[in-house]
Amino acid sequence: MSNLRILVATKRVIDYAVKIRVNAAGSAVETANVKHSMNPFDEIGTEQAIQIKEALAKSKTGTAEIVVVSCGPVKSQETLRTALAMGADRAIHVDSDEELQPLAVAKLLRAVVEKEKPDMVILGKQAIDDDSNQTGQMLAGLLNWPQATFASKVELGDKSMTVTREVDGGVETVKTPLPAILTTDLRLNVPRYASLPNIMKAKKKPLAKFTAADLGVDIKPRLQTLKIVEPAKRQGGKIVESVDDLVDKLKNEAKVL
């Protein structure tokens, strides 16, 4: 019989389908009036926690409580409500209007872990805005917990998990004792959509609020963004008429054959 508590970290980011625009000052990406949603890798993390909970319930071998946490501005609560509607039990919002870099988020999450004492923390392998791919590994280091990153399969054992990880050129399987950190890769699962009744129910689920000061964490940024620019545009779009034409261009124009 295992009774697990699973903490899932989620981040509110610009929706993956939105075309990114750099602001006129070249200091940031435009975020005003732009659609935001939960970081896709965090949706996979939320789904994984729910699947673990459902599997435990189905086999009658235990229970799981899923706590979702998000660090960021007040609008992060929308992301938390999405996770609650998917099936998480309760939420924690760490409110901050300051820029939160991965090390600061890892420290905030450590403080939440110390309060909640989960058996497992699930994070997306990276957020699709800053593409850092750091927070899970940093949290594992700060807690001195084992980490299994870039997971494509998770099997829960007795106080342990066996994780298949996506590595360069194939997959690797590792086993860690619990508590542990898990970060998700794309193929781990396909996240569910929240049903309308569950969206309604999610509005009544508990959501606790803290600030960085409440948690006693220094969130000062360590990296300073000097400028942001659009990437160089490619001059593409030339159409060739035939395979012969293509071979000729590759040999004589591009000189790559």
């Binding site: 300073q224 963004t225 659009e230």
Partner: peptide, 15 residues
Amino acid sequence: PIYAGNAIATVKSND
């Protein structure tokens, strides 16, 4: 690169 290479950031580390 950030945002999957749709923007390019220059960052300075103060560590």
